[in-house]
Every structure is written in C-alpha cells, then in structure tokens.
Design a protein around this nucleic acid. Structure first.
Lengths: 331, 331
DNA sequence: TTGAAAGCGTTACCAA
DNA sequence: TTGGTAACGCTTTCAA
C-alpha cells in the first residue's frame, strides 16, 4: 500500500479510502486506481480485519458436503452472503459431534462475524465456545427446543408423521420404515421417531423398522434395506424411507424381485431429490427446501449483523421452513 | 494473549510458543494451558498470519457445488489438507469465467498459500492475477496443453473417444451424443469434441448431436434430449451422454416410450455417478475418480508448499488420473 | 479532502 | 528456556 501511495503521490490513508469507497476527490481516485493497476496491488484482508477488528468471514458447518441437501443449503448461503462481501469458511463434520467441535474451535480462530451449524445437537464444549465467542449463531435444518440463538428449519418428526398419515389415508395398512443405523444423524432419527409416534397414534400395530448403513444415506442403502424388510416382515405393503436416495434403491430392489411399485409395495421417500421426480415410478416424498434454508439462514445472519452494527437488540427467533407432501406414482 | 500471559505469569512470547508447540518447559506449558482454558482464549489467526507472513488458507474454485463430481473433489481436498491445519476458501464459479476471476481476486486478498482451480480455461486477468500472486496453482479435471503450473486430471476428449469405440465394438452403428448447450462447460465440450473425432475416425457418418440445457447437467436434461434425438435422427441405435445424470433421464424417456434399453436403444453415460450403478438397467459409463482428483491435488499442493519452505525448486507437472470404461446393462 | 500517528494481536529476531 | 522489541499491513482517530 505504501508503494501504491508513493506512486500516486498520496498518503497510505488516501489509498485506503479509495479502496473503501470513502470520499476522495475524483482526480486523486483516478491516480490511485492507476497506481493500483500498475502495481497489481491486492489489499491484505487479514491486515484489514486485524486493524478494523472485523473479519468478513462466516463459518458454516454441514454434516456432509456430498449430500445435495447440504450442498444446496451452502449454495443458498453463498448466494445471500457473497453480495455482501462475506467469505464462507466451510466445514464438513461427517456427522460427528467431536469433529464439529474441532472445526468450530479452529474456525473461531479466524474471528468469523457469525456462524451457521446444522442441527440441534452439539457437544457442551461447542456450546461454550459459541457462547464465549458472542457472535450470532444459526442452527439449520431443525427447530431445536432450546436453540442456542436463531434457528431455521422444520420439525423432521412432524414431517415424518405427516407422511405416515398420507400413506394410511391411501389405504396402506402395514407400513414399514427404512432408515440409517447411525446414531448421529439426528434428522434421520427424528424421522424415525415421527414414524413410530404416528404408527402408534393410528393404532397400526408394531412398528416395522429396518436400520442399515451410515449417513449420508445413499442409493445403495435402499436395496439391502428393502430386502431385509421383506425378509423380516414379508407382508409389508408400504415403506417410507428416510431419504429419496434409499427409496430409489428400494424401488430398484422391488423391480429386481418382480414386485410392482406401488401395487405390491408402495415406497415413499424424503427430501424431493431430483431422482424422485425423474425415476419410474416417480417417488412420493416430502419436499423440503434446502436452498431456501440456506437463503433464510443467510438473511437471518445478515439481520443479526445489521442489528449488531446499529446497536439494536434483536430477539433470536425460530424460523420455520415449509415442507409439503408430494404424491407421485410410487405410493 | 496478554491476559493469558499475565495469568500464567509469563510473557506473551511464551504463550505464543506453547500454542505453536515450540520448546517450553513442561511446567510452564501446564500453567499456560490452564490460563488458556480458564480464560477461554482463542488465538487470532489473522494476526498470526499478518505477523508471520503466511496464512493457512487454500483457495479452491469449482464450477458447481451441486454436482457430486465437484463436491467429491472438494471432500478429497479437505481430507488431505485439513490434517495440515489448512483451511479451505471455497468458491462456486457457476461455470462463468468472469465469476471465477472475481472470486480469485477476492480470495487473493486473504493471501492463500496456494490455489486450486477447475479446468484449463481462465480469463487473461485471472492468469495475470495468479502469476502476480506467485503462489502454487493446480488446475483440476483437465490436462491443459499450457498449464499455469501443475495440473491434475485427465483428457475428456480421449475418454469420450474411448466410449465411442466401446459402443462401436459392441456393434452399434448409429451413435448419437447428448450434451449440454453451455459454451462454458469445457469438460462437456471436450467430451463432445472426442465424440466427433472418433465418429469421424471410425467413418461412422454424420455426427448426431443434441445439445440441450445449461451445466451442471442434471437428470431432467436427459428426457427432452432423448426425445429430440429420436425426433431428429429416428434410426439412432445408441446415445452417449455427457453425464450419467442425463443418461438416466434418457433411459427413463425410453421406458416411457416403450423402448427397451439396450435392445431398441443403447445408452451410455459419463462419470460413474451412484445412480449409474443403482438404476435398472445399470448404466455403462466412464468411471472417473473425483475424490481422487481432490486427493492428488491436495498432495500436489502440499508438495509445492513443502518445496517452497525448503527452498527447493519444484518442476510443475501434469498428473494424469486414470479413468476406465465400465460396461453395464444399458449398452 | 487529505495526512500523520497510534495501534490491532500476533510472531521473528536477538538478547539474556 | 525465556523475555523484550520491532515489525506485519492495514484502519481508526484526530488534526490540518
């Protein structure tokens, strides 16, 4: 910056002002810009952050980058935050709370302006770290009963209950659930909880649950899970899956066995992934809006930062994201 | 840090040394750690970077976060770089060279230690920026004829040619190509180029090309593209698709029309996405290794940094990633 | 509209 | 093994 200042014949401060868009006469601005171009000068953001006491980082933690659910949420966040010059610090927790804690600790070292996490479950140490950092926090994809600060999401329990009701209304009597075995995917566990609750509420007998494989649930989870279901509860007439991914795999397994979907076996998914619309039969599912969760989270974060700047006290809130049952060919 | 030092009864420098793992007596270390815990002190990475003149950032640019291809590459990068305490700065160029340039410019402000880009195409300004920054650069997913520095990828042209040969060897005579319309997806364009070249080399007549929709190519691109192909070249007996995603959509469209795959119409994909293995019929495809590209890129980056530290001059190289044709049911 | 000086929180360097 | 001092490159603040 000194070099630029010297070449333009001004002080460092003037260069700084030009870069920040503060009031500088046209002529001076022009000269400074030319000097910048000539030297290929790029301002050091770390120094700026240190000096001004405010970074332009937003920390974001998702359980898995390879699930389109979460990568879409990240895209939503990016599209909201980038225009404000904010830079995402992205971390993949791999569904592990300890990894989340490690990542939070490591990211906090960059003094992010705010942070978005996935889910309601965090280690005590994570909570303490966040509290101490005193920055705005948003929990995504869930509506925790005791949110740390703000939350943007929906109740996976209720969404799963709605799907069971949907299947029951369509006349299916012996409804099973295909989920993951991981004790760490709390969205998945909530869906299972919802399934159990509604089966009980509707007096539909013993729950029929198959749990197979680690999160993130992929297509290849579906086939063996469906096979296990048919083995254990041969008279099942419908299954709801924790994800469209496994629903797709389950349908393929039915095809392979010569079972017609939905006549011999109805299948429902969760998430409204692209495959649910494109495959045959298309998959009845719960449509959620991952990109929208990212957008709304971004907006909530911006609002919190704005409030902080103006000194306004902002009430932390839980922002519900709509979901809908989409009835298609598979159920 | 001063607070910690005071509480532990040492100087700031000693605290800094404890954090950096430099030689400090056991006893002192213990006291310092206790003080850190008690105060919940978190070192400021920006200040450290400023002082030491080296950040812990690695800039990474991909065309699209929603393609599992690239999110897997990002995961590969993360898994290699995180153990070394490096933090990814991730950017999504949305297949736009100008956006890439903007992102590079913005990321360079954080003084990343090195940078990974996707593809061989960049604006002149981007190239100049990278040159000026004088940090190690890796281009991924391609083997440019004039790499900026290091490259990790494979020839999409050759891979596509290999697929055409595979189909020809299987006896298909009238082979078409289903690709995207985007002029910016150079991996896609290279595959088209390879298709044309091999069709010509094998004397298979006029190329039959349908180009529809923007990148990233998704499942929903496939059905209309297949429809257009049947409209324009009704006697086509095989199509190769720029991606497994559109191949899946194309197969669904065949099912809808009562065409048997592969008897009435063979379909091949590209990428060996999960759906290619799980759907029915399973899809013949080119298996590439997106996670491996990320891994190797991370290793190349680490090697370059290492070399820089030891003062060794490292020759920039092009690292080829293997791909293979996987023959399955669809072709 | 512009400039000078102080200071942000850390690490490099040299001295003890 | 430890401590003091001077930077790192910027922005804030105050003065002109």
């Amino acid at each position: 910056m000194s070099d630029v200042a010297r070449l333009a014949g001004v002080s460092k401060m003037t260069v700084s002002r030009v870069l920040a868009g503060h009031s500088v006469s046209e002529k001076t601005q022009e000269r400074v810009r030319q000097a910048i171009d000539k030297l290929g000068y790029v301002a050091d953001a770390a120094a700026g952050a240190l000096s001004s006491g405010r970074s332009e980082f937003v920390a974001v933690l998702v359980p898995s980058l390879s699930s389109s659910n979460f990568s879409d949420t990240v895209r939503g966040l990016m599209s909201t935050l980038e225009p404000h010059g904010l830079q995402l610090l992205l971390g993949d927790t791999d569904y592990e709370l300890e990894r989340e804690e490690r990542l939070v600790r490591s990211m906090l070292r960059y003094q992010p302006r705010c942070i978005a996490l996935t889910g309601a479950q965090h280690t005590d140490a994570t909570r303490k770290l966040l509290e101490r950092s005193a920055i705005p926090v948003v929990e995504m994809w869930d509506l925790p009963s005791k949110p740390i600060d703000t939350a943007v999401g929906f109740s996976n329990v209720r969404a799963a209950r709605a799907m069971v009701r949907h299947l029951a209304e369509r006349g299916y009597q012996r409804i099973g659930f295909l989920g993951g075995a991981s004790a760490l995917d709390s969205r998945g566990l909530d869906r299972l909880k919802g399934y159990r609750a509604e089966i009980k509420a509707l007096n539909m007998g013993e729950p029929r649950v198959i749990r197979l494989g680690e999160s993130p649930i992929t297509m290849s989870h579906g086939a063996p899970a469906m096979a296990a279901m048919l083995e254990k509860y041969p008279d099942t007439d419908a299954v709801m899956c924790v994800s469209d991914m496994s629903a797709f795999g389950a349908i393929m397994e039915c095809h392979r066995r010569g079972l017609s979907v939905p006549d011999d076996m109805a299948v429902a998914g969760f998430g409204n992934f692209e495959v649910a619309e494109c495959c045959h039969p298309s998959i009845t599912t719960v449509s959620v809006d991952p990109f929208g969760i990212g957008l709304r989270t971004g907006e909530a974060l911006l609002a919190a930062l704005e409030a902080r700047d103006t000194g306004a006290e902002i009430a932390s809130q839980s922002i519900p994201i709509e979901y809908t049952i989409i009835a298609r060919g598979s159920a």
